[in-house]
Each structure stands twice: as C-alpha cells, then as structure tokens.
Nucleic acid binder design. Structure first.
Lengths: 115, 115
DNA sequence: CTGTATCCCTATAGATACTG
DNA sequence: CAGTATCTATAGGGATACAG
C-alpha cells in the first residue's frame, strides 16, 4: 500500500500471518508454550533463520510473547499473548473454510480430470 | 508445501486471497457485478496484467464468475459466485480484527514513540 | 541451545508496448 | 474494451557457516 486512504483492514489482519510458516507457528503455540527447539522439531522444514524471523515479527505484532531464561545453555520460550489468542477464532474460520475448499477442489477434479 | 501430510487448511484458505490486490477485488465484487474497466477505475494502482491475472486465479478457485459478452467492443463482467460469497464472512472477520489491530497499533505507538 | 551473517534463488508484481 | 507479451525490479525465503 502506498496511500493510506486505500488502506484495508483485511490486509492488516493478513499481514499478521503473512509469512510462509506463521500459520503453523501460530497453530503450535495455540496449544501451549514452546521452546525454540521444540518449534524447530515440529516444523522441520523451517530453517532457524526463518523461524527466528517469523517469531520476531509475531512478537512485534503483539501476537507472541518471548521469554528468555538467562542461563547456559540458553532457554527461550514462546507463547501466544492474550492478544494473540484473539486471533484464534480467525484461524479457526480460515481452517474451516479451507478444509471445505480442499474437499470441494478434490471433488471437482474427480469429476473433471482435465481441470 | 512439499509434503501433503503437512498440508494446512488455513493455507488453502489464505491461498485464495493470496495476491496483492485480491482482497480489494473481492471487496469490490462483494457489492455487485462489475466490468473489467470498472474494476480498473476502482483500483487505479493495479495494472491490467495483474488485475487479469488475479481475476483468473479467483475464477480458477471458483470464487469469481467471468461472463464474456461476444460483441465489439468486448464486454466482460465479473461477479462473486455463490461459492465465493461463502468467503464473505471470513473477510468480514478479518476486517474486524484488522481494524482493531490497526487501532491498537496506533495506540501503542502513541504511548511509545520509539517503539 | 538459540540464535546471526552471507549469499543465492525464485515468485510476484510493475512498466511498457502490442492486439483482436 | 479487455486483454497478452516481454522485460525488469525486489522482497521473501532457503543453504550454509559462524557465534555467544
């Protein structure tokens, strides 16, 4: 967006999960607090760099809380903030619609193999 | 996504409006059927190429219906399909959350100008 | 364990010109 | 009017190596 007057609140919401792995990170943290390494194990296709980057962005957006335990070796925990939890219903409706969309898509392709 | 078993329905939903101008196109078509040129006028920052491309993708996802009137000069109308309309509630909740998010953001920055 | 720093690569979008 | 074709620019992500 270049002009403020064209700003769309939908984009503001989408920006929060704009990042290839953010929905997955969000889903993981929806259940419980997790350490960095735990997230890595649950998301084996994300590199440390990108995982860190996405977590920082989620933190800056107020969605995620980062807690550093000053010890050796380092221990860092991530969790959804109360504010972040207000996004859970959005994710749920996206998930519901998306699920139906995938099924509809499969159904259509089954009837029209040539797409 | 490389592996099917990691597939996330949230991504499937997001993919539908994945495109810089798709939320705006969607919003425009939510109200009424529009001709290509009308969309262009309402979205002056989108090039014809991108507008066409996004509309094609929305059509392929079953969201938008494209109606060609075989006449000279050409006339093409775009509208939301019934299926596309099922996405309106999703957009509404995104919009609502996004609106609050922007306001929260402004509020925070007012308190912490260096944030 | 939890990161950073670099370099590279691709996907997406914009500029511009051409067309039925 | 409603596109398509071509070229370019850039932002996001990934591979890899290094570090406190």
């Amino acid at each position: 967006m270049d002009e403020e007057n064209r700003f769309c609140p939908v984009e503001a919401a989408l920006a929060v999960i704009d990042g290839k792995w953010k929905p997955y990170i969000f889903r993981n943290l929806s259940g419980r607090t997790m350490r960095f390494g735990e997230l890595q194990r649950d998301l084996p296709y994300v590199t440390r760099k990108i995982l860190t980057q996405h977590l920082r962005e989620l933190e800056n957006d107020g969605i995620v809380v980062r807690t550093v335990f000053p010890q050796v070796p380092p221990k860092v925990e991530y969790s959804l903030s109360d504010y972040g939890k207000t996004f859970i219903p959005i994710m749920s409706s996206l998930s519901g619609w998306g699920q139906a969309h995938v099924e509809r898509d499969n159904h259509d392709r089954a009837k029209q193999p040539d797409g």
